[in-house]
Structure formats: C-alpha cells, structure tokens
Simulated scan of single mutants.
Amino acid sequence: MSILVKYIERAVKRGIVDEYILYMNTDDSQVSDRAYGYQLAEQHDWIRIIERPLKHPGPKQRSTGYAYRSFTDLETIYVRFDDDVVFVDDAAIENLVRKKIEMEPSKAIFPIIWNNALVSWYLQQCGTIPREWGEVSPYCMDPVGWANGPFAVKMHELLLGHIEAGTVEQVYMYQDFPIKLGEQFSVSCFASAGKDYAALEQPGVLVPDEEENFHTVHWPRVTGQPNILIGNAVVSHFSFFPQRPFLDASGVLDRYRELADKVVA
C-alpha cells in the first residue's frame, strides 16, 4: 500500500485523479493496518476512507462487493486497485478512464495487469512472455499464471527491467481485446462507471455479491456487454498467495519500492 499510494499521489498532482478512496475491509485484529490507513487520510486531503457497510459471513474478500454501494455517482469513472498493486504506468489511469468513456457499450475496462493469469495468456500470444517459462492457459487460476512462484518471479523481473530502462511501452499490446463474455479472471485493477452501478435494481448492490464473479462472469453475460482489456495501460499486481514465498525471497518488492520512491521525489 505504501508503494501504490505514491503512484496515486502522482496522478492527483497531475489533476488526473480527484480522490482516492480507501475501502477498509479489515478485521479488528488488523490494528496497524487500520492505523496506517487513517494516518494516510490525515496526511492527504485527497484520501477518503469508507468502512465496509456489512461483513460477509464467508471469506473476507467477499466483503469487497459491498463497496460499490458508495460508487454510484453518475458523473464519475472509478478506477479500482488491489492494495498490492506495486506499479502504475505513467499513462495507465488516464488511458483506462478515456477508454471507459469512449468504448461504449462496455462494462469494465482492464489494463495489462502484470501477474494475472488471463493477461499473461494474452501476453504469451503476443510473444511478450516466453513460453519456455511455462505455458499459461486462459484460466484465472491457471497452475502457471496463478500458482507458479518461479514464473511470477521471472514475470516481475522482466517488467522491472523495462521500468528501470524506461521501456515499459515495449510490453504494450498492439490492440484492445474484448474479453469473452463470462470469462472469470482476477480483478486487481479496472475502470468502471458510477452510472452503471446506479442503474442496478438496487443502486450499487451487486447480485451476486462476490465482486469478481459479478464483474467478470455475471454482468457481461446478462447485459451482453463485454469487458475490455486495453493494450496501452500497465499495472503490476504483486502476488497470489501460492507465489508469495518465492516473491518474498526474490527481492523484487524492494526494487518496486525504490522505483515508487522516485515517483514523487
């Protein structure tokens, strides 16, 4: 989170982002996490905190779906980030928002999410990721793209090399891709419109209430409007839990932190 907020601050200073909302899907035991979030909000007048309105009886991540009850402003494009997004390309947020405004009808607009199994499949088809690292299939929990730690380390090292060399545009894809209706995948970052949530039967109430299923499976199928993966926006998602021991031992997070520290220096 301390890495991601540097990129949001850059976007705020450029006039691209109006407000950064921290959705506190936290347990009472997460004392230091909650304190850090509120400390950020005290330091920056462009950060606002929303506490989750309900606690889902299932796994904690199910409670993220309740956030959209606060995201129904008709004039707002929202860009959602996981808290472990550790890099945001210079043009990513603006390109996501512009494409959401321009590419109607559509539902969610997704960037190239680095370390996302479905996106990794697209990147392999484009020749950006070597197949020798392991063949990725277009499945959100693919054994290589989602669960393979050494593969994730190689992925991050590849992107970090481009960031450090100033050549991130070399991993852009040559076009935007409508994603197959109902294709489930991890939703670490996307742009969506408040007017779409306001138009739900109960404004902002997702049915089904699980955020990922709603956005990638249910909503595109029932509306016939696809999600779009755009080729000129890159963000980097740090880790899925099976990858974490390998990534923690690799040193890549320290490299991301060093890069973030230069963003608003």
Rank of each mutant, 00 (worst) to 15 (best):
L4E: 01
V5G: 00
I16Q: 05
E19C: 10
Y23I: 10
M24H: 05
M24I: 06
S29G: 03
S32M: 13
D33E: 13
R34W: 02
A35H: 09
Y38I: 10
A41E: 08
E42N: 09
H44R: 10
H44C: 07
I50Y: 03
E51P: 04
R62I: 01
Y68T: 15
T72A: 04
L74V: 08
V79E: 03
V85Q: 02
D90Q: 15
I101L: 07
M103G: 07
F110Q: 00
I113Q: 14
N116P: 09
N116I: 13
A117E: 08
V119P: 01
T128I: 14
I129R: 01
P130A: 10
W133C: 07
G134D: 09
S137L: 10
Y139F: 09
C140Y: 11
P143C: 05
P143G: 02
V144A: 05
G149S: 02
P150Y: 14
F151Q: 01
F151E: 01
A152P: 02
A152E: 10
H156P: 07
H156F: 13
L158V: 05
I163Q: 00
A165Q: 13
A165G: 15
E169V: 10
Q170L: 10
Y172T: 15
K180I: 15
L181R: 14
E183F: 13
F185Q: 15
V187H: 07
S188Y: 07
S188R: 08
L200W: 04
Q202A: 06
Q202K: 07
L206Q: 00
V207L: 08
P208C: 15
D209W: 10
E211I: 10
F214Y: 09
H215D: 11
T216A: 14
T216W: 14
P220Q: 11
V222H: 02
N227C: 01
N227F: 01
G231P: 00
V235G: 07
S236A: 11
S236P: 00
H237Q: 02
S239H: 04
F241L: 14
A249L: 03
G251R: 00
V252F: 02
R257D: 10
A260C: 00
K262Y: 00
V263E: 06
V263T: 15
A265T: 03
